[in-house]
């Protein structure tokens, strides 16, 4: 055994200039990163706002509120996205609970299925709903004969949006629930708590930040969803156009200032989402940490 292990560290000189990467590599990498971020993110973002307000703030505001179809698009997004998110909260909590708490046959398959919407192209997701509710199927014909329109109407917009955003809530909750572990719930159970009491008083407080985080991500994606919604919407102005569809329509109609005005609203929603996300991220982490330390104790 060496008498003193200290010398080894003494021999090591503090990192000299020679040991660092040469200046040109560092500057090239930093410059490249900044350049790419600037080119791909900052410039387009800024240009949305510049283009939107190019003809003055009054025109900008007018572009947003004067047109009935644009107002309807904003309204529709404000309805469709929350309903889709609410559906996913119910499904997501149930699925995450089932996966985190129980070991059953097909559990692995369920986890894979929850992730499916991430890997399926949104256009395909939309086409699936057209195939289910379209007139080529008995279900579509039955619905038509009973005067109910699913496809090319808001119900399909909600379904398509919910499908595409399905993984967000469940994916966020599974690790939280697994980290928290079943101990507190078992304790509550043994003290005579009913199922609802257990859920509202034990589980929800434990997962609330993770749930909120999932909801925020889910909502951001739901508001911005284009592909699946485009396919199932039928593109009826003032009826099934959500905000992203309306942006595209205004753009195609060469009404660039109006298209950018609406796009800027979507962008601002995204920025709000980003801020909320950054704000609650530490809470989500501490929730998971709390679960882990509770487990090791």
């Amino acid at each position: 055994m060496p008498a003193n292990p200290q010398p080894a560290t003494v021999v090591l000189a503090p990192p000299s200039r020679d040991n660092r990467d040469p200046w040109y590599v560092r500057w090239a990498l930093i410059g490249l990163t900044l350049g790419i971020v600037g080119l791909l993110i900052v410039v387009p973002l800024a240009s949305v706002f510049v283009q939107a307000t190019a003809k003055g703030l009054y025109v900008y505001w007018d572009n947003l509120v004067a047109n009935a179809d644009t107002r309807h698009a904003v309204f529709l997004t404000m309805v469709v996205a929350p309903v889709a998110v609410a559906m996913n909260v119910v499904f997501g909590v149930a699925a995450a609970w089932a996966i985190a708490r129980f070991r059953f046959r097909g559990r692995g398959l369920l986890i894979t299925l929850i992730d499916l919407p991430f890997s399926v192209s949104p256009v395909v997701a939309g086409l699936v709903f057209v195939l289910i509710f379209g007139l080529q199927t008995p279900l579509g014909l039955w619905l038509r004969d009973h005067g109910y329109q699913v496809i090319f109407a808001p119900p399909a917009l909600v379904l398509a949006t919910a499908f595409v955003t399905f993984p967000f809530v469940a994916r966020e909750l599974i690790p939280v629930l697994e980290a928290v572990g079943p101990d507190e719930e078992l304790a509550a159970r043994s003290l005579g708590a009913s199922g609802w009491q257990l859920f509202w008083w034990i589980t929800v407080p434990n997962i609330k930040w993770g749930l909120l985080y999932g909801v925020i991500l889910c909502n951001a994606r739901a508001m911005g969803e284009f592909g699946a919604v485009y396919v199932v919407s039928g593109r009826i102005e003032g009826q099934t156009d959500t905000m992203p569809l309306r942006v595209q329509k205004l753009w195609e109609g060469s009404n660039n200032p109006a298209a950018f005005a609406l796009a800027s609203v979507l962008t601002m929603l995204a920025l709000v989402t980003l801020v909320l996300k950054v704000l609650i991220e530490p809470k989500v982490r501490s929730e998971q940490e709390a679960g882990k330390t509770a487990e090791t104790e």
């Binding site: 309805v79 469709v80 309903v83 609410a86 109407a153 808001p154 119900p155 909600v158």
Partner: peptide
């Protein structure tokens, strides 16, 4: 919102 969506069909 849910009622509106269902009714819109």
């Amino acid at each position: 919102a849910s009622v509106w969506v269902v009714a819109s069909g």
